[in-house]
Write a protein that binds this DNA or RNA. Structure first.
Lengths: 149, 149
DNA sequence: CGGTATTGTTAGCAAAAGTAATGAGTCCTG
DNA sequence: CAGGACTCATTACTTTTGCTAACAATACCG
């Protein structure tokens, strides 16, 4: 089995941290550039996605989850609301807070976005073996946990 | 074996594409925020890292590799040169081109950065099993290939 | 030679996220 | 039960980071 250049730098935790940082940064840029139609920004998509996965939550929780500062989330939510993709309701027990949730239109957008992303990534994914895709699947879960900690 | 919420969305290529996009975006933000001292931006680090890995190359090649446009790389290289981390020399056979390479100081910075990142990530990585770290290692290589395609 | 292509840079701009300050609402304590 | 401290979201402003377009210098080719 041929040793790839990368593997030589990932033996240590520090090496893995470096490689992962660089790779993740590059892939994030690539994904941003890929978003053909300027339909939704990456952040907007992420918020929508999170709501779809976890259900309604407050802007603050959403910001915490996405690892952005509250003002950034305010902007994201405002943009999504303007487009009718989310709805804001007052928190029943605390008038300071709000609850953000997807509208049916928002849910459809999540589905549409998933189809759209496939246009670029599916080409790449198609070239991967099932094992490699499985690796990515499991890595996504692990990275997800990393961001939470 | 308990089924995680994520796995339900990654059965299809499109689902995997979505999850990966969101997770990668979030982790990239997290990493950016993590860069404690304002030592180097993510992009600067990535360029440095690439030079450390592949040796000297022209700004254009570097831009191509990092998936940014040439003007962006101009700025990154200028910033690195100003700090004495890289050196620019004229290409021996083509006066238009330049060759960018690390200085010894740059090499030390790569090492220092690796140690610095470890401060945050090592905490997370420590909680992972060897198998999980291996998954990340292999995923990094796969994602690396994805960005090249 | 003279025109075209390529490489890198400069200039100007736009998107996205951050910090600091503000307003509204809640909670707690004296 | 009033006043002060705290919390959540927002507004205002700045920073970061990348882009496109236009340009200068060099190389290549007919």
């Amino acid at each position: 089995m041929k040793k790839s250049p990368l593997s030589q730098q990932t033996r240590t935790d520090a090496g893995l941290a470096s490689v992962l940082s660089v790779t993740v940064g590059r892939l994030a840029r690539r994904l941003r550039a890929q978003r053909l139609d300027a339909s939704l920004s990456l952040g907007q998509n992420a918020a929508l996605f999170t709501l779809a996965r976890h259900g309604e939550m407050t802007p603050g929780e959403l910001a915490e989850h996405e690892k952005v500062q509250p003002p950034s989330m305010t902007r994201i939510v405002a943009a999504l609301e303007e487009r009718g993709l989310v709805r804001r309701t007052k928190h029943p027990e605390d008038q300071r807070r709000q609850l953000v949730d997807l509208t049916e239109e928002g849910r459809e957008m999540v589905r549409a976005d998933r189809r759209r992303r496939q246009a670029w990534m599916a080409q790449r994914l198609k070239e991967l073996t099932p094992q490699e895709k499985d690796t990515l699947r499991r890595a996504a879960e692990i990275m997800d946990r990393l961001t939470q900690a």
